Every structure is written in structure tokens, then in C-alpha cells.
Computed example of a mutant assay.
Amino acid sequence: MKLFVFSDSPDIMKQMLTYLREKGEITAATTSGDADIGKFGASVLYRLKGNHMPDSVARTVAGLVRKENYDAMFFGSTVLGREVAGFVSEDMGLTSVTEIVDLRFEGNRAVTKRFFLGGKTVLEEESQAKVFTVMPGITDPQEAGSASKEQEVQEEASALSLVEVQPKKAGTVDIEKAQIIVAVGRGLGKKEGLQQIEPFAQKINGVVAGSRPVCLDYQWLTEDRQVGLSGKKVKPKLYIALGISGQIQHIAGMRGAKTVIAVNKDKSAPIFEEADYGVVGDLYKFVEEVSKAL
């Protein structure tokens, strides 16, 4: 099979290449400057050069796709990746399946799996789709035995103009490098609750992070501490989820954690499906008792 893969995220790209290279011959394209991407199994790797505006990237990728008759096309599920996948799907009149976590081919049909009903179950579908967006964490990246043939491609002109770049203010903690993370969700109930969580995290040499509602909706924590699909992807040795329901957007950000402890009042919370250890109960009582033991 001839497969095409695109992602602006080097991590997701390496995962997709590792997962797909046994399924066919891969041509890949990326906007990332990560030098190691060429070690993960693509026979050809296009490196897109330009300002990486969504419209120009989408048209450039569509142009690359039209050069060959690919059996399937895969896009990393990032903000840019989803937009490019939608453009290619519409532009070429192809059926798409989004946010897949597993795939196999049966003849000319694809059998995919993706989370459904807010992550509470897995939906298996059989279709003739040719375009797929791939969730982070589909596999652990492993280098291949050969290097890709690389080629630079200039992106098509964009209808947008880049006026100014304003870097986000850097936080004091890089949660992506943390070995122990204590993450809080809606179950925290109030911003003042952080005054009990932060000393607990310090006792176990961890850092405090949060779900999307805590960081973006309520702004109890800064945006750079958000774990999830639209936030940071973390791989700590220990991840303690306090009051987090476990929607798939959050799971996508912490699936790489080695050990997960979840505390939630709702015994049916999806987070327990991802947890190695689960506690059904009040998060504040949990923190108090463990702090006493420490």
C-alpha cells in the first residue's frame, strides 16, 4: 500500500511513522524542523518551507497528495493537522474518519477505532475512508533501520499576512519535563483549593497541572500548565489525577504517563479506565490522608 503522512508535531509524526511503516510504503510531509523525523521509516520526507499559514500548508499538502495515487492519507491530530485533513478531504472528495486510535486494513476497507461518548467507550467502524486524523499516543516511536530521502518544498502563497509574532510568556514550570505531576480538574471546586494541592505536590517533588476547564475556562492555573489535546503532552513517571473526569481530550495529553492514580467521586468516570490505581472519594480527603502519611 502507498500511504501519505503529515504532521506539524514531531512527536505525533514519529508515532504515526512507527505505527504505519509495516502497513505500506510511506511518503511524509512536515513543517517541523526536527532532524530526527527522517529516521522513522518514511521512504520520502518533504520538509515544507514558509510561514506555515493554514491555507498555504493545506494547498501545498493537497498538491503533494495529487502527485501520487495514495491508498490512504494520515494527519496528526493537531490544530493544523485537522485543518489540513479537512481541506484535503473536501478538495479531493474523499471520506474521512477522525481521531482514530487504531487501524487495520481488510482488503480495500479500513477498520478503525476511536473513542466515543466522551471517551466512555471505543467505536469500531468499517469504511472506505481514505483520510484519517490520528490521535497522539497511537504507539511508542521507534527508529527504523533506514533514513528517508528528504526534499524541501516551498509552500504556496497564503492569503494571510503575518504581521507580528508575540511569544507567550514563559511559565516557571515546564510540565512536559516533570517526572511527577499532580493534575486537577473541575472536581477541585474552587481556586482556593490549590492552596491544599500545591503543598502536597511539593512533598512528592511534583508539579501542579490542570485540565482544560481549570486552565482556560476558570483560569485557576495558567495556560502553560494545561494537559490535553490542546495543551501539553506529558510523560511523567507518576500522574495523579484529582477531580478529573477523563475526557478523551485530556487523556490524549497524559496517555504517556507510566503510572496513573485517579481520584474522583464518580465511580463511572472515564479516567478510571486509564488509571493503574483508582480511588473513589473526595480528593481533599485523599490529599489530607496521604500528606499525613508522608
Rank of each mutant, 00 (worst) to 15 (best):
286 F>Q: 10
43 S>N: 04
92 M>A: 14
57 V>F: 02
122 V>N: 10
76 G>I: 14
20 L>R: 05
84 V>P: 06
45 L>W: 07
288 E>T: 04
184 V>W: 02
158 S>M: 04
282 D>R: 08
64 L>A: 12
124 E>D: 06
270 P>G: 06
233 K>S: 12
48 L>P: 02
163 V>N: 01
261 I>P: 02
90 E>R: 05
197 I>V: 15
102 D>H: 13
141 P>Q: 01
167 P>W: 12
75 F>G: 05
165 V>W: 06
128 Q>H: 11
142 Q>G: 05
243 G>S: 04
188 L>T: 04
37 I>A: 07
142 Q>L: 11
219 Q>V: 07
225 R>K: 15
49 K>Q: 13
139 T>S: 14
90 E>T: 11
195 Q>R: 13
6 F>W: 10
292 K>M: 02
273 E>Q: 15
65 V>D: 08
49 K>R: 13
37 I>S: 06
33 G>P: 08
228 G>I: 04
99 E>R: 04
217 D>Y: 05
55 D>V: 00
145 G>C: 01
289 E>N: 13
53 M>Q: 09
237 K>P: 00
271 I>Q: 02
86 G>D: 07
6 F>R: 07
42 A>T: 05
35 A>E: 15
213 P>C: 13
99 E>S: 11
280 V>K: 10
191 K>G: 15
141 P>Y: 00
257 A>K: 03
187 G>F: 04
250 H>E: 13
283 L>T: 02
100 I>T: 08
280 V>Y: 12
19 Y>E: 09
15 Q>S: 10
286 F>E: 06
17 L>D: 02
230 S>E: 08
171 G>R: 05
277 Y>M: 13
101 V>N: 14
271 I>G: 05
205 N>T: 05
43 S>Q: 11
257 A>V: 01
272 F>L: 11
190 K>Q: 14
37 I>K: 11
68 E>P: 03
157 A>G: 01
34 D>M: 12
274 E>D: 12
101 V>G: 03
64 L>H: 13
47 R>F: 00
199 P>H: 03
2 K>G: 03
97 V>R: 12
269 A>V: 04
36 D>W: 03
159 A>R: 14
269 A>Q: 07
63 G>V: 09
132 F>E: 05
145 G>Y: 04
93 G>Q: 06
25 E>N: 12
190 K>E: 15
27 T>A: 04
180 I>T: 15
